[in-house]
Design a protein around this nucleic acid. Sequence first.
DNA 1: CTAGGAGCTAGACCCGGCTCTAGGTCAACT
DNA 2: AGTTGACCTAGAGCCGGGTCTAGCTCCTAG
Lengths: 157, 157
Amino acid sequence: MVEITPRLSIGQVAERTGLSVHALRFYENEGLFLTPVRRGADGRRVYSEDDVAWLTVCIILRASDMPLPELRRYAGLVREGTGNEEERLALMREHEARVTGRIGRLTESLDLIRFKAAVYEDIVDQGSAAAHDCHGPSTAAEGEERSPVRRREVLAE
Amino acid sequence: MVEITPRLSIGQVAERTGLSVHALRFYENEGLFLTPVRRGADGRRVYSEDDVAWLTVCIILRASDMPLPELRRYAGLVREGTGNEEERLALMREHEARVTGRIGRLTESLDLIRFKAAVYEDIVDQGSAAAHDCHGPSTAAEGEERSPVRRREVLAE
DNA sequence: CTAGGAGCTAGACCCGGCTCTAGGTCAACT
DNA sequence: AGTTGACCTAGAGCCGGGTCTAGCTCCTAG
């Protein structure tokens, strides 16, 4: 007699998932659900826990910047049922590659960011230790290579 | 007699930086340069290597999703000259935190992505080893906790 | 002299991904 | 009876970050 799959209102789903009710309707419109969202007698949307489970997957994929069209395609594959796992795999692997690439580029950027921060920290520390004017390095440097953030091009300012 | 700071055209800067000429004008409009971009007698923009060096910094900050307003603010601080290193430091540290946060969330997402991929890979391998139908797990799972991507909520599909 | 190519400005447009509004239905309280 | 409050639809609006267009000025080469 326990409710096996409680029927959730859009508001409840919004609350649980952190998506807005607008976003939920929008996602539905975009074809991101696995099954057409059911309606109650009064025409209101009724969600199941399965919907919520799927949404949490969507949220994670979106959090890693999977574009909506690709998420839609993925939803389509899942909707089709078993048999297309190669395609799902390819899609996931592709996405994985994008995400690792993104992480890599962000990590590279962190080199510069931390380097800059360290430079400013030194100046600040120095300035507060002895209370005389800071003498910032204004020598500009040329940058040619760029992959593993070159020291010199990073120094100025 | 060597050109100490060669004068570059917008096209040359675009080529070197990978930014479009449009983007270069746009950035200028947005106040992202350290000094007003000089103009030749004919009214065309003339860039120095310093500009390019600064642009490469901008590009890295943008690559890590520093919003334009913040980049503008940073440019402003640098423009002001030495003396505001605490502010520059704070800005960089803040940005650093955002970037590490982002990397963390992406890395978390990777857990799910790889898990899914692994599931599909198993199915595909299994399917190709013995040529009988795949029996995908369609058992839906409820998801409550979510930080360290829970196993169960991830299984379905 | 004329055609191309690079630049110029101001401003329109685009894209992704929501977000919000207008105008309405319904059920539940007071 | 009236007021919330949650929901509905269709469609407009917004934001960030560019991108592109129109219509113009130059310079250079053929």
